[in-house]
Write a protein that binds this DNA or RNA. Structure first.
Lengths: 226, 226
DNA sequence: GCAAAAATATGATATAAATCATATTTCATT
DNA sequence: AATGAAATATGATTTATATCATATTTTTGC
C-alpha cells in the first residue's frame, strides 16, 4: 500500500458530500491517499480498526472467512465507503477488504471521523440512513441464503451486479469477476456455480464470454429470484 | 391491538434515553401505547411504515417470509426497538413483527421520530452505532447460513438466546420458544432441528424439558459454533 | 518468453438436510 | 369437558449441493 500524493476533489465522497463546507479544510488536512495493487489487502478481519476508507478508483472485495470458506459481502466501487462496519462497539474489522484491481483509497483516521460525526449532524444522519438500508439488504440476503436455492440466489446476484455496475458498450455487466468470487458472493462453491450458470446459459437467460456476462432475459432472472 | 392508557416512564426506551431532557415533554405528547395479544401482528412485511415501536413488555418475533418459509431475524424483548428497519429509503417494513406473548409497545409516528432525530444529535449518533452493530451481526449470520452446518448454527442460536435472555432460577434459558421458531431462527426446518437437538442432548451438551432448555456445556457449544 | 500458479471445466461420489408421511401429545376455545 | 388445532416426535425417502478427482486453459511474475 503506497502513499499517494494525488489529492481528491473534496467533493465526491460520502464524507465530503455530507459535511459542512466549513469543515472541508479540516478534512483536507486529515485525509491520506493510498494506492493498492491488485490482490493487496486494505484491512483484515479481526484487525484493530484504524479508520474509514473511501474508494476513489478500482474494485475492492469485502469478504468474511469461515475457515477455508469465504463469503463475499460486497464488491465496492468508486465512491463507496469501506471499513464502516468497524464503527460498531467492537473496534475490530469484522471483514477483510482486498483489491481486485489496482485501487486508490482515501483514509480518514477513526478519531477524526468521530469528530466529523460530532461536527456534522447531516453526516451522522446520512450514515444512519445508509446503515438502515445496508441492514435491510443484509437481512434479505440472510433469508435468501437460508431458503432460496442456488439458482435463485445466482439470479439475484447477477441482477444486483448489473444494477450496481451497469453495462459496457457491448451490453455486458460492467465488472469482471472470477467465477470463484461470484460463487462466494452467491454463497456457494465454484463447482455448483459453474453448473447452475450453465443451466442459465442453456435456458438462454444469460450469455457468458470468459469473465463477461450478458443478461439476455432479465424478466426470467427476476422470476427466478422472485 | 388495543390502545393502552398505561403511560411509560419516559426514561427507559432508546428514544427517551438518547433525547435531551427538554425534548421529553414532546415525546410524552406524541407517544401512543398499545397492548397486543399473543399471536397478534404489530406490522407486516411490505406494509407502509407508520412509525417506530418500543417494546415495554413481552416477546415479539421479527421475521421475514419467503413463500411458505420463514426466517426469524430476532426475538425482541423489553427495551428493544421495533420497526427501525423501515428507516431506510424504502418506506415499507422489510419484516413482520408478531407477538409471541401478550405485549405492550409504545408507538412513535415516523414524522415525529424524524423530527426527534433532527433535534437530538445524540439520538441519531446512537442509532447509527446501533445499526453498525446490527449490521455486523447480520453479516456474521449471513456467513454462518452460507457455510456453517445446522449443528454449529444451532449452537450459536442457543448461546445467543442464553446471552440475550439470561437464565431462570433453575438455570434454564429464560425464554420459551416453539421448536419451529427456534428452527426458523437457526435457518432450518423443524425436523432437522429436532434431530440435531437430539444429538446435542445425547452428547450431554444441552438438556431439554418441554420448552425449557438448559445449557450443560457452554464450552462445547462455543467450540461447535467456533 | 517461460515456468509456476491460478482459474476454468467437468464427471463421479458422498452427504447434509429437506421433504414426505404419520402418530401422538399438548394446547386453546366454544 | 369436548373438540379441533397446534406442536411434537420420528422413520423413510429424496434431493440439492458439497466434495473429490483430474484435465485443460489462462494469467502472471521473473
Amino acid at each position: 500500500m503506497k502513499k499517494d500524493t494525488n489529492s481528491c476533489d473534496l467533493a465526491s465522497c460520502f464524507l465530503c458530500r455530507n459535511s459542512l463546507t466549513s469543515w472541508l479544510p479540516a478534512v483536507a488536512v486529515h485525509k491520506k491517499n493510498y494506492r493498492l495493487n491488485k490482490g493487496e489487502v486494505l484491512f483484515k478481519e479481526n484487525e484493530n480498526v484504524q479508520g474509514i476508507y473511501f474508494l476513489y478508483d478500482g474494485i475492492i472485495k469485502v469478504h468474511k472467512q469461515w475457515g477455508e470458506k469465504e463469503l463475499v459481502i460486497n464488491f465496492a466501487q468508486q465512491g463507496d465507503i469501506l471499513g464502516y462496519r468497524g464503527l460498531g462497539s467492537d473496534k475490530v474489522y469484522p471483514v477483510t477488504a482486498t483489491a481486485l484491481t489496482p485501487s486508490t483509497v482515501c483514509f480518514i483516521d477513526l478519531g477524526f471521523f468521530e469528530t466529523s460525526l460530532e461536527a456534522n449532524h447531516q453526516l451522522t444522519y446520512q450514515l444512519m440512513k445508509f446503515f438502515a438500508n445496508e441492514l435491510q439488504d443484509a437481512e434479505k440476503r440472510m433469508r435468501n441464503l437460508a431458503h432460496m436455492e442456488v439458482k435463485g440466489r445466482l439470479s439475484e446476484t447477477l441482477l444486483l451486479l448489473h444494477k450496481r455496475f451497469g453495462e459496457s458498450k457491448e451490453g455486458y455487466i460492467d465488472i469482471l469477476l472470477s467465477k470463484q468470487d461470484i460463487a462466494s458472493f452467491t454463497g456457494t462453491t465454484y463447482e455448483t456455480l459453474f453448473r447452475v450458470m450453465n443451466e442459465l446459459i442453456k435456458e438462454k437467460i444469460i450469455n457468458v464470454n470468459g469473465k463477461k456476462i450478458f443478461l439476455l432475459n432479465k424478466t426470467k432472472l427476476k422470476k427466478l429470484s422472485s
